[in-house]
Amino acid sequence: MKTDSATIKTGVIDTVKSQGPLVMLVVLCVIAGICFPAFATSLNLVNISRQISMFGLLALGMAFVILSGGIDLSVGSIAVVASIVALQAGRWFAPAAVVAPILVGVAIGAFNGALITWGGIPPFIATLAMMLGVKGLAFVLAGEGRSAAAAEQVVNVSGWFPVIFRGDCFGIPYPAIILIAALGVAVVVSKYTSFGRSVFAVGGSEEAARMMGLNVNKCKMLVYMICGGCAGAAGLLLASRLKAIDPTATGGWELTAIAAVVIGGIPLTGGLGKIGHVIYGVLILGIIPNLINHLRISLPPWYNEMITGMLLLAVVLLQSLIAKRGTR
């Protein structure tokens, strides 16, 4: 009898532990729904889904990198370069506006991967340097203006281009559909392909993966290319939203993406976690500023940052407590 109840208890703890991010998300939504009647309206939800689509894509790519035991700080810069490329390429040949940013993202990702595998530079510092370098490249590509502030410029785009971000299908915005599709592909890749599994093995122990006969370098290259590609896709959405060149548009996105992955239950040490859960992290981080928007009655704008930070802290602390309870 005793063992039965014990098994049930560990089972419950296991579920709560593995579904921690989901629990957090539900709690957050319930609170939001009760406190702010405007939260659960379809208009608001559609808005949220548009807003999270870009950094959701970044977080998906980042999840692969972090699972493999690495990190990529250059995604924000890649996204902004990709957005500029999309707008510039669209001037010459319209369909290129869709393909070019993703290709550019993959190419920069490949360069990251090469620095990390063949160059032997730790991922953190390699991608940090690339974050600076690629952002510099963004200004170069933007062309006009000496300073960041002057660099924003509106570009004439084809009529269909803004629809990528603005349009919807049966009420579901295109960006949300893109994100959901990407999520589905990511889950299948991580669970049902040899590459996907090798990412976990490499993240668990690179040495062991090598000795098991896996091609560690290839795996890491692919991971950074995927991450770059996702950042490129996010850049495409950004371009479609802004319809303008702004090299400073993505400051801090990389950190939000990393936070989303970690809140989604993938530790920075890699090798552990579920890609699918990243979406919970993305949603939690997407809902927080939305909540603050509802909160803002008479608060000065800088309270946003503070409240975001504190909510993030609450989430992280709760997770750490849940994890502790589980191991006891």
């Binding site: 599994r197 093995a201 062991a208």
Partner: peptide, 14 residues
């Protein structure tokens, strides 16, 4: 030299 977080079966076949 195995992947600690993957399942036993997977470690055999990865």
């Amino acid at each position: 030299n195995l992947a600690p977080c993957l399942s036993v079966a997977e470690n055999i076949f990865i």
